[in-house]
Every structure is written in structure tokens, then in C-alpha cells.
Write a protein that binds this DNA or RNA. Sequence first.
DNA 1: TGCATTACCTGACTTTAGTCAGATAAATTG
DNA 2: CAATTTATCTGACTAAAGTCAGGTAATGCA
Lengths: 302, 302
Amino acid sequence: MQIDQISRVRNFGRSVAVEVGALEESFLNRGRPLGAARVLNAIGLGYQNVSDLRALLKLDTGQLSRLLRSLEAEGLIETTPNEDDRRSRQTRLTKAGEEEFTIYEKLSNERAAAILERHKNAERLLDAMDIVTIALSRENIVFEEVDYASEIATKCLTAFAAELSARLGVEFDLKKSGDPELSQMKHPNGTFVVARLGDMPIGCVGVKGRGDTLAEIKRMWIAPAARGLGLAHRLMTTAEEAARALGIETLRLDTNSTLVEAVGLYRKMGWSRIERFNDDPYPDLFFEKCLRSDAEDFARGE
Amino acid sequence: MQIDQISRVRNFGRSVAVEVGALEESFLNRGRPLGAARVLNAIGLGYQNVSDLRALLKLDTGQLSRLLRSLEAEGLIETTPNEDDRRSRQTRLTKAGEEEFTIYEKLSNERAAAILERHKNAERLLDAMDIVTIALSRENIVFEEVDYASEIATKCLTAFAAELSARLGVEFDLKKSGDPELSQMKHPNGTFVVARLGDMPIGCVGVKGRGDTLAEIKRMWIAPAARGLGLAHRLMTTAEEAARALGIETLRLDTNSTLVEAVGLYRKMGWSRIERFNDDPYPDLFFEKCLRSDAEDFARGE
DNA sequence: TGCATTACCTGACTTTAGTCAGATAAATTG
DNA sequence: CAATTTATCTGACTAAAGTCAGGTAATGCA
């Protein structure tokens, strides 16, 4: 590791530490210790089980308990035993708590907006931030099946279409490119897998089936900021496993030779090139993979 | 400001806050409160005046004094009155202090290295970090005259040459391109100005003179990560002021039309295009600016 | 059913962090 | 040279953070 690279990371750390500190300071101005503010914030963000809060904020049981008591005394939260297990407890913001939470959110948003306002071409800064965000917390990326019409799926698909349009130099229309009846990417016919970091879309892939043992991989996309981390491999693996669970034995896909990263991945994961199997205008390369063979053993590598 | 952009900044903030916290936690494991560790670190980095320490760490005088006392009691630092002004005091690491400082440095470096090791193509991540670093702390960028042969100048010139080579598609040789006798970019003939963030090179520009009222601008460069922030304008302004202070009345420069950003800047800052005034192989555009005219008033805009 | 475990709470504590009003000694100013 | 300012220190605080040993009620298990 070059000394120079390390100093770049450390310079980075210093500069963001200042920002983090400034945000915390702004939180302090509401007359409440930082610990309590953090707890209130976490509850507002949906961490309502006391044990979840403890895990998230890494607090001692005694300390968290006292912070909850102080927020209760302020009338900002209410605590009730959990229905399922009456030993554990849930917290909920009161109306006053909601308001206070909103103020903290506003402070956070204002700080973020202030950073952006200082920059004419914020898009460049935001892209850089995305790269760092994803790199630093990539172990928190989750791969999961979601509804093809869900919000996160739509975000992915929109970005996918925009990028494909730019790459192919034409307006790419999801509808035109054999856009599936929604049901074909839903259980039991098929599925749709996204990778996300919190609510940030990282990538997606669809398995489009018709209820038999043959299905098609569609809409494979990784966010530009997330490339080079080997996520496409994990995404595809998730999709293949989901397909197998649906009883699918053969997967096919079409792609375009301009998507060089994708084509390279398919080959590496044990897909074999086959003859054109549709007459869509965009694709010019076609692959197949048998889920029952040992073929995917080869792909474990990456 | 789009909600989506703000949430990108906030996601970024969350992910780096985790890293910052982890680093601080690693510091805590040396059995010393974070405040004392920070002070020790700052002293090791060269902040040896008590007043500098106080300004840097934003500590109350009483608190800093106590932290210094505790480090002294540990035998890690020594404090002596300042020679010039015996009211103020200077601290210095003892041998034991040096060792302890080194351990903290090692911890910091290890954390940074750990981040990099997780990434195959770290250069992309580092570039992103640089963009963020510079954007977040751009008010700390200093513009100053340095020796043309200093370390920071050399860093800038190396990067400049590498980039020009890539842009022009040929090996760019600083020596060939009318490289000045060193004395021509030194007082009293000329000067060399760099922009830096700490020890990170951000940009440079040289004023190459021969002792009369005519001089030439050379080696104008802004680090890729620092572009789009209007720094070139400030760099050029600094250079022009330095030139004026040297008694120079007319500045000339040559450039290449592939450097579109630079050419745009010169025009905006009131430079006028003139005839070729040398036969160097690289440049194909030539500009001049009179420092005595009101021309530069125009340039205040940006 | 009784004993262990779990999830949380309380009380009693220590350690850090942070504040503020003098005190002291050196430098500056009129 | 006396008065003021400056840079730092000390003592006496308060507040916040963090630790730990019980205690209580709900749950799980033999």
C-alpha cells in the first residue's frame, strides 16, 4: 500500500470528521444531550424495539434505559411491552416526539443542502459521495426479492433505462423491449431481485418466467457508483437461487455487446452463448445457463 | 434542492460517521481518553504552541491545560516557555511520547489501509475521496508562493506533466518545453504559486521572468479532483498579484487548444489572444494580459 | 412445576468533557 | 513605570457518558 494512498484516505477522514462534528453540534443546540438526541432520531427512523436501539447505537442497557426514561419524561416517546414477548419493549414517538424528530431531520437536511449549495456542479460531488458510501458500507448491501412494481424496483429500472438509452444512443423503451406482463416477474412465474443499501438502489435483475422450467434473465443493472465491487456476481447468484427455488431449470438472457462488463460476467459465471432466440431490436448476444448442471460450480470463483 | 440529492449526502454522512467512530474507538483502546489522544496526536503533527493546539482542537483553556498536564504526568510531553514570548508555551514530545504518537499513527494508517485493501480498483475510490475532501474543505485551500524546486511544487509539476502527456498523446517533457532555468521562476525574476490543502497538491502556476517588465505564465495546472470549484481563477489571480509585486507589467502565456477549460478561463479573466511568440512544439494558442490596465477588473466576475 | 434464561430496569458509582472565576507571570502601552 | 493586556494555569464546579452489580417480570425448558 502506497504511503501516498494512505494519506489520501486520511485527508479524507479528517475532512469528513469535521462535517460529522458540525452536524452533532447542531443537534446539541436543542438543549438535549447528544445521546438522547440520537435515540430519539433512531426511534423516528423506525428502530422501535429497545433491543434494536441498543444494537444500533451500541449502548449499555443501563444507559439506554436511562435515555429512554429521560425522553419519556420529556413526553417525546411512549414505551409499551411488545405484544409477542412481553419482556421486551417497544417505543413510539408521541405527537411532541414526532415534531422534535422532524426538527432534527430538518437540521440534518439543511446541513446536507448547505454542502450541495456550495457547489455548482453538485452531480460530480454526489457521484463521488455515492462511490465512497457504497465502498465503505458494502457489507450492508442486501440482495432481496421485491415486487417488480415496488418503489425500489422502479428506481432501479428508471436508472437502467436511462443508462441503456445513453449507451445505445437511442431512446430505450422498457415497454418495447418485450416488457413483461408484470405477472411474469412475480411469483410463481418469476421474480425480481434488487441490491440496495438502505433505500439506495444499487442494482437489480429480473427473472421472467411463464410457469414452466424455462425462464429469462432481464433488466440486469448495477449502479455506476457500485461497479468494480463484484456485486453483479452476487446479484446474479441471488437471482439464480431464486429461480431454482421457483423450479426453473434453464435460464436464458439476451444482451448487447456494448455492455462489455455484463458480457464478461456471464461468461465467467458459466453461461454459454446460444443462437438468437427472439427478434428484439436491442440485443445482439444470447446466453443460456442450466441450473441443474454443475456448471455454476465454476462460477464460485469470481 | 432535490430530496434525492439530500438523501445521497445523508447516506454518505452516515457511512463515514461509522468509519470515524471506528477510528476513535481504536484510539480509545490505548487506555487514554480521546481528548488526551487527540492532543498528543496534534502535537506530534507539529502543533506545538499551546495556543495553536487550542485553536485546532477548539478546547477551553482550562481543559487543554489539564490534558497537557496529564500527558506530562505520563511522561509523553514536555512543556517549555516560548523563547520569543515567554507567556506562551510550547510542547514537545518526549521519546516516550514519540513512540506513543507513532502507535496512534500506525492505528490510523492501518485503518486507512484496511479500507483500501478491500478494494481491487482503489484508484477509483481514492479519486472519489479526493473530490469529497477538496469539496468539503475548500475554504482551507491556501494559495502561496513556493520554491519551484520544493516538494509540493514537484508534486504538482509531475502530475501536470503526466496529464499533459495523456492529453496530447505524447510524452510531455518539461525540459523540452522551454523549461526555465530555475532562477527564472524565483524572486526577483519570477515566482511559482501552488494551491494546496494541507500537503495535498491542488494546483500550481509559474511566473517566468527575466528581470524586466515582461514575464510568462507557465505550468498552469489544477488537480482533476479540484476542478469546477473556480480555483483556477483564484490561482491565476494570486499569480498576477505576485507578478505585479515583482514589477511585472505584461504577462504572456502559451497553451494548447486541447486544454479547453484553461483557454475558457484566460478569456474570462481578460487575456487577449496574440500572435505566436515562440516555436515550442506543444502550444498552439497564445495570450497576453497587461497588469497595469483596468483589464483585470473584468475578471473579478468569475 | 420449578429453574434457568432473557429483556429490561434501577441505583450507585467512575470517568470524561466542559465551564467559569480567579491567579500568575510576561509582555505591551501610554 | 504603572496600568493593561495576553497566555496560560489552577481550583471548584456541572453535565454527560459509561460501567456494573443486583432486581423484576416474562418466557423457555427439563
